[in-house]
Amino acid sequence: MTTQGSPQMPTQGTPQAPTQLPTVVADSEVATPTSVWRLAMITFTENRLALIGLIVLVLLILFSFVGPLVYHTNQVATNLINENLPPSGSHLLGTTPEGRDELGRLMIGGRSTIEVGLGVGLLATTFGLVYGAIAGFAGGIVDVVMMRFVDALLSIPYLFFVVLLAAIVQVNLLMLILVLSMVSWLSTARLVRGETLSLRTRDFVVASQGFGARARQVIARHITPNLLGVVVVNGTLKVADAILAFASVAYLGLGPAPPATNWGELISTGINNLFDGYWWQLWPAGVLIVAIVLAVNVIGDGLSDVVEVRLQKR
């Protein structure tokens, strides 16, 4: 690469690999930075754990969505002759109290679990982020009204709220995602609002307003990127929360009606039958839930590395 400017280098920096620096070709050519996405990719893949988490998540998605195409089972009819069979050649992970194949059950249960978990995590985090950032950034009466609304919703017991909503609306998966998100975004909004309050007075935000930047420009360019670290980690916890909440809602019979199922429901069945020695009804579902929660968590960790630019090596 040709260096056009003065040979002065920033000194505090870590040693740099010249391959990642922009090439300054001709005099009229202007140095534009390398793609943010490429840098992000490099940082993410450097976090081994996050990469493993991503692979696990992909495998779990394949298991739930592609699995039933390979491993055919009847998940509609109950078959009382086959109830509570231990794992064998014909039923790899045994059967349920209704006589359905456990492995097949885990596959279709995985679909709704993953949909609800990721859906709620994404929806609640996005909405909470926007809501909290607006409240924190606007301040004054807007902030007071917006946050009192959050406080009011938080004061309603969570399960009561979900039961109430589930009773009012017709329960399908999409509705359930919305209902769980409506509870879940509240704490994110509070967290984001608090962070925004401190970011709002930072010099670089004041500087940006000093160029005449509008509120939405400041929120998009400065507030949100600086919030991402906290929000992403918080969001991964939301995924785990949502999966468990889904289980308790389903346990109360408010989820989609059988034969639809989810991992949480399978676990509660397994717990009920644990003393009969039907371990295969509990452990596989438990392992899958732990696996997906951990996977999402380490992915979140990796993502927060990506937004924490100080960790970027070059």
Binding site: G5, Q8, M9, Q12, G13, L21, P22, V24, V30, P33
Partner: peptide
């Protein structure tokens, strides 16, 4: 805009390659 950035960097005596670096990499 990028031309202006290069011009400004030149004025404050920093190399053009600075565009690709983060603030924490500077004194």
């Amino acid at each position: 805009q990028w031309e202006r950035v290069a011009e400004l960097l030149n004025e404050i005596g920093l190399n053009r390659r600075a565009v690709d670096l983060y603030p924490h990499e500077f004194s």
